[in-house]
Amino acid sequence: MPAPTPTCFKRSVCRAACSASRPRSSGCCPSLSSHGVGLRPHAKTHKSVDIVRRQLAAGASGVCCAKIGEAEVLADGGITGILITSPVAAPRAIERLAAFARTAEGLMTVIDHPAVAGRINVALETSLDVVIDIDPGIARAGVASPEAAVALARAVAILPNLHYRCVQYYCGSRQHIEGFADRRVAIGERAAYLKAVIAALTDAGFAPEIVTGSGTGTHRIDIDLAVFTELQVGSYVFMDKQYLDCDLTGDGTVPFETALGVDARVVSAKHSGLVTIDAGYKALSTDGGVAVVRRGAPETAFFAFMGDEHAALIAPGICETLAPGAPVTLTVPHCDPTVNLYDHYHVVENETLVAIWPVGARGRAR
């Protein structure tokens, strides 16, 4: 029996890649360009040179990567204008960054500590644009106060190989608040803090050229708040259950199509209310709940993991309608870590396989 396969529905992928400037339906997602906001989508979602090329063709000004390894894969595929959004601090990582900077056109990387900035400066043989990462309050990474942001900007200003460009601010903990009103209150409070940091930098002579951040969950709110000059949305290109559970627009409409599924097969059907499929813990992320049926089985069927290789679909009489070998497509709970489990996308249009795209940056955790 074939192993589960991630499927991209090409019509949806292409439409989603354009959604920042061309909404799914009129009025559902405002045009970024009309608000003076750029698009720098996050490639950690799809890890694919083929998809980045389509996003750039649709008007994106650049692309984000979480790690150097992801950026190296995209650069090998001819992609320029890459921003590395996670701090690079380990000695070997700084060596890789310095080597990468010699050939990567338009490269930027975040920093959040003066000592690390100094080490990067020493390693470089060319200049590198840097972005001050600001902690939105989750204590993961980033400078933790306006004063710290100014101090870091001053430290960078005296380093000959570093060029301060902008600030990054990603409120990951706010992206999945399901209610629009609650999410707007939460992100509005954090936007006020970001404005305070920008004001402190500006007063010190370090007005940021770019303010980059946001995400799929808060993109609509962030456009209205008018603080960001570019959005780092990532999951919009696929959509997963975590974001489908959220009211992204305030009126219940879904601005982006679901363009990613995992195809599985029924491998056992011996019980009236249960069938077993070949998609277990090794096939799907587990940090965002469980998958839901997209097609091939009742959408009301309950999904339950049954181990590394298998899961159950549970619904009254499901055994009578699904025999061993029957295909089932699942909407994934969290697209980023699910994609990281696979080598290729099968791109489908009108039920026909039209392309196979490699997930070139999968497994690039460093």
Rank of each mutant, 00 (worst) to 15 (best):
M1K: 11
P4L: 05
P4N: 06
T5H: 10
P6E: 09
P6W: 07
T7E: 15
V13G: 01
R22F: 13
G27C: 12
G36C: 10
G36M: 12
R40I: 11
R40F: 10
P41T: 07
H42V: 05
A43P: 00
K47Y: 00
V49I: 13
V49Y: 01
I51G: 00
A58K: 04
A58G: 09
C64P: 01
C65A: 10
A71H: 02
V73Y: 00
V73R: 01
D76T: 14
G77C: 08
T80E: 14
P87D: 09
P87H: 07
P91G: 07
A99K: 12
A101V: 03
A101D: 02
T103H: 14
E105C: 05
L107P: 00
M108N: 12
V110W: 03
V110P: 02
I111H: 04
I111L: 15
I111Y: 04
V116G: 08
G118L: 06
I120R: 06
V122M: 09
A123H: 07
E125F: 06
V130R: 01
I134H: 02
I138H: 14
A139F: 14
V143P: 00
E147P: 07
E147I: 08
A148F: 07
A149Y: 03
V150H: 03
A151H: 09
I158S: 14
I158V: 15
I158W: 10
P160Y: 12
P160C: 12
H163D: 12
H163A: 15
H163E: 15
Q168V: 08
Q175F: 11
H176Y: 15
G179Q: 10
F180R: 05
A181L: 10
D182S: 14
R184A: 09
V185W: 04
I187K: 00
G188H: 01
A196K: 08
A199R: 08
A200T: 01
A204E: 08
A207C: 12
P208Y: 03
S214H: 07
G215P: 02
G217N: 06
H219G: 08
H219N: 12
R220I: 15
F228W: 07
E230H: 12
M239N: 05
D240L: 02
K241D: 12
Y243M: 13
D247S: 13
G250F: 08
D251L: 14
V254M: 15
F256H: 06
E257K: 06
E257R: 11
A259N: 02
A259T: 00
L260W: 02
D263R: 14
V266D: 02
V267T: 14
S268D: 15
S268L: 13
A269Q: 02
K270D: 15
V275M: 02
K282W: 11
T286F: 08
T286Y: 04
G288N: 05
A291H: 06
R295I: 11
T300F: 08
A301I: 04
F302D: 13
M306E: 10
D308V: 07
E309L: 14
L313F: 02
I314A: 08
P316C: 03
P316R: 03
I318G: 00
C319P: 00
A323N: 12
P324H: 09
G325P: 04
T329Q: 11
V332I: 10
V332K: 01
H334A: 15
C335P: 03
Y342N: 06
Y345V: 00
V347P: 01
V347H: 03
E351G: 06
L353I: 11
P358D: 05
R366Q: 04
